[in-house]
Nucleic acid binder design. Structure first.
Length: 127
RNA sequence: CGAGUAAAUUGGACAGUCGCGCCCCAAAAGGGUGAGGAAAGUCCGGGCUUCACAGAGCAGGGUGCCGGCUAACGGCCGGUGGAGGCGACUCCAAGGCUAGUGCAACAGAAAUAAACCGCCUGCGUCAUCAGGUAAGGGUGGAAAGGUGGGGUAAGAGCCCACCGUUUUGUCGGUAACGACGAAAGCCAUGUAAACCCCACUUGAAGCAAGACCAAGAAACAACAAAAGGGGCUGCUCGUCCCGUUUCGCCAUAGCGUCGCUUGAGCCUGCCGGUAACGGCAGGACUAGAUAGAUGACUGUCCACGACAGAAACCGGCUUAUAGAUUUGCUCACAUA
RNA sequence: GCAGUUGUGGCGGAAUUGGCAUACGCGCUAGACUAAGGAUCUAGUCCGGGUUUCUGGGUAGGGGUUCAAGUCCCCUCAACUGCA
C-alpha cells in the first residue's frame, strides 16, 4: 500500500492503546492516534476468541482489503488499530467494508468522502 | 436392479480487473510461482542441532502371539490363536497369577478357606448330640473341571467313557502353532490397563534447537592448588567449565544473516517378492514468510462447493470432512 | 511453533490402596421468631419416573480393562500456564 506501513511491535500497539481515542461499533473497534509523520500506520488485531486460524486470517484479509480500497480517501499522519470483535466471524466482505467506513467517518478521517458526499448533495440540489 | 463389504481417486472449473509474499532482471517495465489430505491433535518414531566424547552402571520409561519390511516406530505386510457375521469380511495391549507379594466391598455358613439348610449312619424312633458327605438348595462376578454311567449307608475322579486341562512323544511348519498318539485323576478362582517377573528397547533437551555477524555494559596482571558453584540426568561414576554475592533498571530484543527447503521425497516403466517393500532405468523438481503473503469484485457453467490455513523437515497414527467417481468381492431375488 | 497443567450439583471444594459419589462451606427456597427487616434456628436443594418409601441415570465427552472406575488405560473437547 502506498501511504501505509504496518504496526509491528507490541510497544507500538500499547502506546496507541494508552494515548489514542477509541470508537466501536457492533463488529469492530478502532483506535486512532496522530503520529506526526506523512504516513499512516495500520495494525489489525484478531484475538483467538474470534475463531480458528482459518476464520482469523479471513477476517484479517477482509479488513486489510477494506482499508486498501479506502486508502486514497483517508487523511495521512495517523496510527490506526482495528480490533475484530466476535461478531465479525460471520460477516461478509460488504458488511466489514461498511463497518470500517463507518468508524473511519466517525473518527473524522474521511474528509474527501464527506466532501464527495456534500458535492453529490450539492449536485442533487443544483439539479 | 436391491442389500452389504473392502479399497482407491477427487476435494469446484474457466476468463477479466485491482491487490499481497518470494524468485528472475543493474533498475523499471515485464515474467514466473504461491497451502492440505488432513497443513489439525502433538500421540509415537527418525534424521538434524547443542550438551567435551555421547560414554559405563543402577533407577526410571516404553513395547509385548509369530515371522518379515523399514532409517526407525507403539507403524505396515503376511501368518497363528480367539470373538462376531449366512457370507464377503471385520475386531482383539493376545507373554507370565503353574516365580513371589498385594487386593477381592456387599451378600453368603464358608472367598482360598469350607458343613447354614439338606442327604446318610449311630444312640430302638422324633428332637438333640456325635460322625460321614460337596450330589442338591441359597449368596456371589467367582463355591474345588463338565456331561453321562457305574459305585456307595449317603456321597465323592472313588472307578469308567467322551470333552476340557496339564505333561510328554512323533510328524508338519523358520516360528507362533497345528494334527495324531500316550500318560497324569487334575494342589486349585479372578486381577499383571495391581506391584512385579521375563524378553526386547531407551542419554537429555528441542529449530523459541543452535551457528555466525554487529553493537553495548561491567569486571580483570599471569600461573598453580584447595574449597565452592555450574553443565551433561534422578543417582553413582566419569568428565568439562567458572572470581563471588547482593540490589536496581530496561526489555518480545538488531524492520541482522544462516539454519530454511532437493528430500530415507515424487511420477512412469521393467525385474524380484503372496504382500509390505526392495533393485535398476528414465523424467519432473516452482510456498519459504518473520506480526507473518492466497483476498475482493465481475461474468459463465454445474452437483451450488464440506472439514479446514504452511511457520525447520520427513515416516506413521488419531481425529474432522458436503458431494462426486471407480474397482474387487459377498448375499438375496429373477432369468438362462 | 515447542513443552506442560487442570476439568466433580448454581459457586468454591473433599472423596485413603479401585468398593454406598458429592463430606464441608457459600448461595438459593420454605417455615419459625419479629410490627417489619436483619441476625439466629429448623427443614429442603444434581436430573428423570414416582413425589413418604422406591427406581433409573449422572464426576468435560466417547470407548476399553475389571465382578465393580471420579480413581487404571486410550482417543477427543474446553480452559489455563510456561519457554527467546
Amino acid at each position: 500500500m502506498k501511504h501505509t506501513q504496518s504496526l509491528k511491535k507490541n510497544y507500538q500497539f500499547r502506546y496507541v492503546y494508552r494515548k489514542g481515542n477509541s470508537i466501536a461499533n457492533r463488529q469492530l473497534v478502532m483506535y486512532v492516534l496522530k503520529n506526526g509523520t506523512q504516513e499512516n500506520k495500520l495494525g489489525i488485531s484478531v484475538s483467538k476468541k474470534v475463531g480458528k486460524s482459518v476464520v482469523r486470517s479471513r477476517v484479517t484479509r477482509l479488513i486489510k482489503e477494506s482499508y486498501r480500497l479506502s486508502e486514497e480517501e483517508i487523511k495521512l499522519g495517523y496510527d490506526i488499530i482495528v480490533i475484530a470483535r466476535t461478531s465479525v466471524k460471520d460477516a461478509t466482505y460488504q458488511e466489514v467494508f461498511a463497518s470500517l467506513r463507518h468508524l473511519l467517518h466517525k473518527h473524522g478521517l474521511l474528509p474527501k468522502r464527506s466532501e464527495a458526499v456534500q458535492e453529490e448533495r450539492q449536485e442533487e440540489t443544483a439539479e
